[in-house]
Simulated assay, not measured.
Amino acid sequence: MSLGKLPPELYLMIMGNLESQGQLKSLSSLSRTCPTLYELGNPILYEASFNHESKICAALGWAISRNCTGISMKLIEYGMPVNELFQEDAYKYKRLLTPLAMAAEQGRTEIVRQLLNVPEINVNVICAYEKTALHHAVISRNVEIVNLLLAQEGILIDAKCDAGLTPLSLAVSGGNADIVRLLLAQGPLVDPDSRSNRGWSPLFIAVEHEVDAEVVKLLLDTGRVDVNFIDPVSRFTPLIVAVQNNLPDIARLLVSHPTIDPNLGAHNNQVVPIATAASRGFTEIVRILLSHPQTDPDRAIMARSRAILQADIWGHEEIVSMLLADGRVGQESRQLLQGQRILSQKPCAWL
C-alpha cells in the first residue's frame, strides 16, 4: 500500500511525532515520497524550521539558493526572521549572511524584491567580512538589484568591508561600468577617492586590474580623484601602472587630465613613465606621453636610464626616432646616444 493512500489524519499524526522529537530530516524525507504527502507536510516543515534553533533562516536560504520564489514568498509570509544571520553551506569557508545579502549575491532579483517589501527589513546588516547586502549585490554584477538597494531609504552606500573596500571599489575592481555609474550618481554620498586598508584608491584599483577605460573615465569625470595618487607600497602612480601594463587607452585618459604630473616617478625617479615605456617598446604610450606639454623626456635618476638611451639599448628604433624629433630631448642626451652608438658600432648618421 502506497504511503500516499494513508488517511491524511494518520500521516499528520506521524509528522507531528517526528517534529516533536526533532527528527526533521526524517520528516522531510517522508514528505518527499509522493506529491500528496509533500503538500500535506510542507506547512509543518516550515513551522518546524522556525521553531528548531539550528534552522533559523535555513529554509529561506535553501529557497534562495535554488531561486524558489514561491517558497521564499511563503516563508516570508509565515514570518521568517529576515534580518537574522545564518550560516550558508555553499562555500568551503562557511559565511554568515542575511537572506537579503545571499539573494543579492546570487542575483535572485525577485526574492530581493520580496525581502525589500518586508517592513522590518534592514538593508544595512553587517554580514561576513563586514560586507552589506549592497557589497554582495555589486559582487553579483546585477544592475537591477543594485538599483533596488540604492532606492532604499537610509542605505549605507559607502560602507567599507573588512578590507576597507566600498561597493564602488568592488564595482571598479570588477570593471562593471554600469554599476560604477549608478554608484557615482549618488553624488556626495559616495567617495570616489576612498582608500582601502592597503591604501589603494578606486582609480589605482581600476588601472591595476586593467579594467575597461570607461570605468577610469567615470572616476576621472567626477573631478574628485587624485590622479597623481602614489601607492604606499609600490610607490607607483596610476600612470606608471598604465605604462607598465601597456594600457594606451587608460594612459591617454590620465595624461589628458588637467592635474596630471606626467613626470612623476617612483623610487626617487628610478621608475619614470616615459623611460619605462621607451625601454619596453610601447610606441603608442611614448607618443601619448610626448603629447603632454610638460613631459620631460630626459627625466631619469641616471643618464643611462633616460628614455632615448633605453629605447636604443633595447633596439626600439621607432621610439628613438620619435624622441630625436622632439625638441625637449636635450643636447646631453643626444651626445650620450651618439657615444652609445659608437661603442655598440651602430650607425648614428642623424647626429
Rank of each mutant, 00 (worst) to 15 (best):
G22Y: 06
Y78A: 15
P99H: 03
V190N: 05
P81C: 10
S28E: 08
K346N: 08
A103Q: 06
E120Q: 13
L10Y: 04
G281S: 13
V320G: 07
R287I: 00
C348A: 13
D89Q: 15
N269P: 00
E105S: 11
W314S: 11
E77F: 10
H135R: 09
D298A: 09
N42L: 15
Q338E: 10
T237M: 03
L85R: 14
E19H: 08
I288R: 01
D231V: 05
L96A: 09
E130V: 04
R280C: 10
T283I: 10
L115K: 07
D298F: 05
I285Q: 05
A275T: 09
E120V: 12
R32F: 02
A266D: 01
I260T: 13
V146C: 04
Q338V: 06
I139H: 03
R287A: 14
L18M: 13
V138T: 11
P43H: 12
Q87S: 12
S196L: 08
E77S: 12
S54G: 11
P262L: 07
L239F: 01
I157R: 09
Q294R: 15
A90D: 08
I205K: 01
Q335N: 11
P232F: 04
R341G: 07
G330T: 11
Q87R: 15
R306M: 12
A63Y: 07
P188C: 04
S279Y: 00
H316C: 08
I342F: 01
V211R: 11
S201R: 05
A163K: 14
G315C: 02
G174Q: 15
P293C: 04
I230K: 15
G22V: 12
D298G: 11
N176D: 12
E153F: 03
I145H: 06
K346F: 00
T98P: 03
V146D: 02
F229W: 05
P192G: 05
V123E: 01
R299H: 13
P202G: 06
N51P: 01
L168A: 06
M302N: 10
V112W: 00
M73C: 10
I301F: 10
S72K: 00
G223I: 14
L45A: 05
A163D: 07
L184Y: 05
I308A: 09
V272R: 03
V112K: 00
E153P: 02
L96G: 02
L27M: 12
L183E: 03
N268V: 04
L218Y: 07
A349H: 07
W314R: 15
Q87H: 08
Y38S: 07
I260K: 02
L218S: 05
E130W: 06
V272N: 04
E110V: 13
L148Q: 14
P119M: 13
L150Q: 01
A59C: 09
